[in-house]
Write a protein that binds this DNA or RNA. Structure first.
Lengths: 328, 328
DNA sequence: TTGTAGGCGTTATCAG
DNA sequence: CTGATAACGCCTACAA
């Protein structure tokens, strides 16, 4: 593999000139430029990222930390991040934190040792003052970290509110709310929205906390529904949980939506394919990932110095687990 | 951040000695050793992977190329690879090839420029003589590349055979086979198994080729079932397709398994949660990923020079989309 | 505009 | 056992 000095030799210039050409820094004469281009082509030269990283302390890597790739929400998100990063010439390293703060810290350290250019952190812990002692750009996805860190989120409170309201409008009077882990910011925001919607309406509520995972939610729902057969509506904080709940309902022989209505949260692909298809508060998952990545890259490349945040509107997708059927 | 020469100074030895200590190469006196350890601790020193990579041309990165993370089979696989890699001190970079050979080539190039220590390639193209002109270890997952490249696969032919047989034993006489892309080796193997099972039995067959994706399979199945209402069994080459097919059946008002029996392939988590739960030919997904990674790491670390392959047995998981219900 | 030379942090060779 | 020192491939003052 040819290196920069091979190119320099062939082009009859110095390595400095080649370097300047490569990085668009400083002057490069017209003639030199032409020779360099020719040499590069002939040698099929590409600069070594590693050597570059060694001097500049910055690579083309972007670290993406998610809780668990087995929650279908995250592959969709990851895909958006990857696509966007790829389009801009970055490579992403994906890490599963398993909602474990130590594991997360470990990854952050490992990644920063690799001189990743930036980091995208998704929902984990509700930390008011997460301090960015790293010198690299960070953007938070779905989890506001602190004022200085740009954040891309769905309006969680609003989403939970409209989902819950829809249930109530559809005649539900005894709701089971399957929340996510309380340690997560978005959970608390959704909780707030849920309570706002419920307030003043004469509905009874039951609360359970579940991981965003089919099995857990199914089991929890099964037990709760058995203990409280009067429940006629479920609002779940993730589609994964909602689908688990749907399964529990089936096992109990409950007709959905006739006897039990269900609304999820997320808008994952899978919601369309279960039967009955899932009514849900959809996040614009792709956009979430895309915007986060774009913002990160802007920060990395210094195009925007002021960190700003973005909130994306959720959208109620009415499908078949609720009574008022809208268009698919 | 301290570097190796800081450590050397503090420990009163040369950088060479520190390096030897770090890499367990060559002798290091007892006293030097102690001083070095002390210095490292005091300075909180960790060697720079980048600099190391620059000289050794080998990083701690493992590249994993999959077709598409949105097929639920792959997140599960990726998770297994990541976990295993992590345990051995490697970091994985995940790339989506979208079943596009150019994109795959692009990634392979990009990854090798990063001096990844090894590569794990999953199902894409059926290439008899894939030539490994890279100098790094590769293992093929789910796709045999060539004799010189270790491969970890499920016994696809056998899997397809037992799945199909089971359908036939359950009285199905008109089967729709939803295959995967024909360009993929595993598809062809499964096709072979399917035909073996069918052979000699008096069953009619219909074939369609689908991506392993809910929507596509659903649409295709919907059309086929409409044109051929006599079909009473479906064997799909992936759970994703099977679940899409299940959805199509629901839309057509077909009772599963009474009127239509369905068997999938893969054994993804999601199969358990749909209703009715999916009978499937399960691969040991975690083990597949784990073994591939272990073998790769053995190659990387030179512990095993001879490349060997492994085949993992599939297992029929009888659930509710077929008539003979076994235990869950 | 261009070239020289030092440095980024390690590893590896080769004398001591 | 240990220590100089030359790579590795690139960037960037600084000088010309």
């Amino acid at each position: 593999m040819a290196n920069i000095s091979d190119v320099a030799k062939l082009a009859n210039v110095s390595v400095a000139t080649v370097s300047r050409y490569l990085n668009n820094s400083g002057y490069v004469g017209k003639k030199s430029r032409a020779q360099i281009e020719e040499a590069i082509k002939q040698l099929n030269y590409t600069p070594s990222e590693v050597a570059r990283t060694l001097t500049t302390k910055q690579s083309d890597l972007i670290g993406l930390i998610i809780p668990d790739i087995n929650n279908p929400f995250f592959p969709e998100l990851a895909r958006a991040v990857e696509d966007t990063a790829f389009r801009h010439g970055y490579t992403v390293i994906l890490c599963n934190s398993d909602e474990d703060i130590e594991k997360e810290q470990h990854y952050i350290k490992a990644l920063s040792k690799k001189y990743v250019a930036g980091l995208i952190l998704t929902t984990i812990l509700d930390q008011d003052n997460y301090s960015n002692n790293l010198s690299i750009p960070i953007v938070a996805l779905d989890r506001p970290l602190n004022v200085n860190i740009p954040t891309v989120t769905t309006d969680n409170e609003k989403g939970a509110k409209i989902g819950t309201q829809y249930l109530i409008e559809n005649g539900v009077s005894n709701i089971l709310c399957i929340s996510g882990p309380k340690s997560v910011t978005s959970t608390n925001l959704r909780l707030k929205g849920f309570f706002k919607a419920v307030e003043g309406n004469n509905v009874e509520i039951h609360m359970v906390e579940s991981k965003h995972d089919f099995q857990t939610a199914e089991q929890l729902t099964y037990e709760t529904l058995q203990a409280h057969p009067e429940i006629d509506g479920i609002f779940a904080f993730s589609d994964a949980s909602a689908i688990g709940a749907l399964k529990a309902a089936h096992r109990l022989g409950l007709k959905v939506p006739e006897q039990l209505q269900i609304v999820g949260f997320d808008g994952i692909q899978m919601g369309k394919v279960v039967t009955p298809s899932l009514t849900t508060v959809a996040q614009d998952i792709y956009k979430l990932g895309e915007r986060a990545t774009q913002i990160l890259i802007e920060q990395i490349e210094g195009k925007s110095t002021n960190s700003f945040s973005e909130q994306i509107e959720p959208q109620l997708l009415i499908r078949e687990t609720t009574k008022e059927r809208g268009p698919l």
